[in-house]
């Protein structure tokens, strides 16, 4: 049910074209990839933090799309799979036949989002100050380390493996020697913000979605943040059959948290399997190696999973995670993809 994908180049803050242009580039790329034309599209979903004052309907108009299904998405790093789930049901129900999913952002300054993602952050975290989500995930990572007896080396193995997957060597020594940002996180643990866009065409095609689901507001923001809800989704898969896992990686601890919830094993063993290439995770380097292109960071894994399925993988697992409403992400979702 996925027929086309595209990902634009990423740009440093202030260097990329406006979000509307990035989304259009990704849309053209994904339609060309699917062998479809804009006139074939009858559904559109758009996720962006930086499109204001435009909305999804403005994107439809600018792209010249006549539609019978439209979704304006706001679920952060969970947007790609949330859009995919809804689009899949729309196609199955006959409400649309070809749905274009777009996710992208262009930033000159990320601090307005880091400080005021929502009213709780604006009112109770920014005045501390908290410096964006890094401090929250530093506290979460400390809990993760204490709960499992982990050391910085365990996270370093994940980060270095992802850099290697992106074609950039990073040694464990370099990782450990990096200056502290917010203890125990260094700059290698904190994804740099980029501009960029991704697109996916949901229509009859080479990739089938075997299973998909989500959980929202699992713990009222009062738990330890080491459960996202992924473990509660009745996904149809066995870890042993997963050839590639594209796991939402805003911080390395979250990669290990999600994989453990999904039944892949305990964190230290997971880090060793990832470092040794025995578990293929974030096969293009993910956000930890390439940066987070805003909301497109949540679609990167879906796009990469389709690339891997085309390249010979039979089963791919993709996750999304996002929207820090106070202390950690309040949305988690996952999909199991396979070749049709």
């Amino acid at each position: 049910m996925i027929a086309g994908i595209a990902e634009t180049p990423y740009f440093r803050l202030g260097e990329g074209p406006p979000a509307l242009e990035l989304l259009a580039d990704a849309a053209r790329g994904a339609l060309a990839d699917a062998g479809l034309a804009p006139r074939d599209v009858d559904g559109l979903a758009v996720a962006s933090f930086s499109l204001a004052p435009d909305r999804a309907i403005d994107v439809a108009w600018r792209l010249g799309l006549r539609l019978r299904w439209l979704s304006d998405e706001a679920t952060g790093g969970a947007s790609a799979l949330n859009m995919l789930q809804h689009a899949l049901r729309a196609v199955e129900a006959g409400d649309a036949k070809v749905v274009l999913l777009l996710a992208g952002d262009s930033f000159t300054d990320f601090s307005p989002i880091a400080e005021s993602l929502n009213s709780a952050m604006r009112d109770h975290l920014t005045p501390i100050p908290h410096g964006g989500p890094n401090a929250l995930f530093a506290l979460l990572t400390q809990r993760h380390m204490a709960a499992h007896g982990l050391a910085r080396e365990d996270y370093g193995r994940v980060v270095c493996a992802q850099h290697a997957a992106a074609g950039r060597e990073l040694s464990l020594e370099e990782y450990l020697a990096a200056p502290m940002v917010v203890d125990p996180l260094t700059r290698y643990d904190c994804v740099p913000i980029r501009s960029g866009a991704c697109a996916v065409v949901v229509a009859e095609g080479e990739v089938r979605i075997r299973s998909i689901g989500a959980r929202f507001n699992l713990d009222q923001q009062e738990g330890d943040g080491l459960r996202t809800g992924l473990g509660e989704i009745p996904l149809d898969f066995r870890p042993a059959e997963v050839d590639v896992a594209e796991i939402y990686d805003d911080y390395p601890a979250m990669v290990l948290v999600q994989l453990e919830e999904l039944g892949f094993g305990a964190p230290r063993e997971l880090a060793e399997r990832i470092a040794g290439g025995r578990l293929r995770v974030n096969t293009a380097g993910g956000q930890l190696a390439n940066g987070q292109a805003g909301i497109a960071g949540g679609m990167h894994g879906l796009v990469e999973a389709v690339r891997q399925l085309r390249g010979g993988a039979r089963t791919a697992l993709v996750t999304g995670y996002g929207m820090i409403v106070y202390r950690h992400g309040a949305i988690a979702n996952a999909a199991v993809l396979e070749r049709s």
């Binding site: 100050p129 410096g131 964006g132 890094n134 530093a138 200056p179 940002v181 917010v182 203890d183």
Partner: peptide, 17 residues
Amino acid sequence: TVLRRGPGRTYEPAPSI
């Protein structure tokens, strides 16, 4: 934790959170 750096800045003194 201790907040030492943010995007484009260092915190001095570094706040404890």
